[in-house]
């Protein structure tokens, strides 16, 4: 079992509000933001990508905290998950220096439902001295449900 991308050797992560079984191949992601622990748990895995570089995948299991009145995942939850995933790749790319979201664009193709496992493959598209470009593709059962792209500002740069 691989270690989570957000693991820290000394610090104890925040406990998530719910206990959820780890999906196959994933480990539970240590969470450091209270809001993410409030929505969590989240899970992640790194697998070899087509070009040999590791791909970061993260996932969450949809429950009653995440849905709207129609039983479909709230757009705000998808945005929150996108921010957590893309933020993880940005933050780890720059050796965990502080960084913040500059912008986020999302296209919603299909609404995940209660019990679905929503998975995201996050990709670092470009890195400049002060800004990171991160993209994400979101799937349920291999069907694309959302695409996202984001910019991250490295603070102090």
């Amino acid at each position: 079992m691989t270690e989570s991308i957000n693991a820290h050797p000394d610090k104890t992560p925040l406990p998530s509000t719910r206990q959820v079984t780890e999906p196959d191949g994933y480990v539970e992601t240590p969470l450091w933001d209270p809001y993410e622990a409030f929505m969590g748990p989240l899970f992640d895995k790194r697998i070899p990508g087509e070009d040999g570089a590791p791909e970061l995948w993260m996932a969450f299991r949809v429950d009653d905290r995440h849905v709207n009145t129609r039983g479909v995942v709230h757009g705000g939850m998808m945005a929150s998950f996108a921010d957590a995933v893309m933020g993880s790749i940005a933050w780890n790319t720059i050796d965990r220096e502080p960084c913040v979201t500059l912008s986020m664009q999302m296209n919603f193709l299909k609404g995940p439902k209660m019990g679905d496992l929503v998975e995201c493959r996050a990709t670092l598209t470009r890195q400049t001295r002060s800004v990171l470009f991160v993209a994400g593709e979101f799937f349920v059962d291999d069907n694309l449900v959302m695409t996202g792209s984001s910019l991250w500002k490295i603070l102090g740069k």
């Binding site: 809001y35 709230h74 757009g75 945005a79 929150s80 998950f81």
Partner: peptide
Amino acid sequence: AHGGLLMAFADA
């Protein structure tokens, strides 16, 4: 405030 929360509030 978490970025996800701000986007969720905006979406609502």
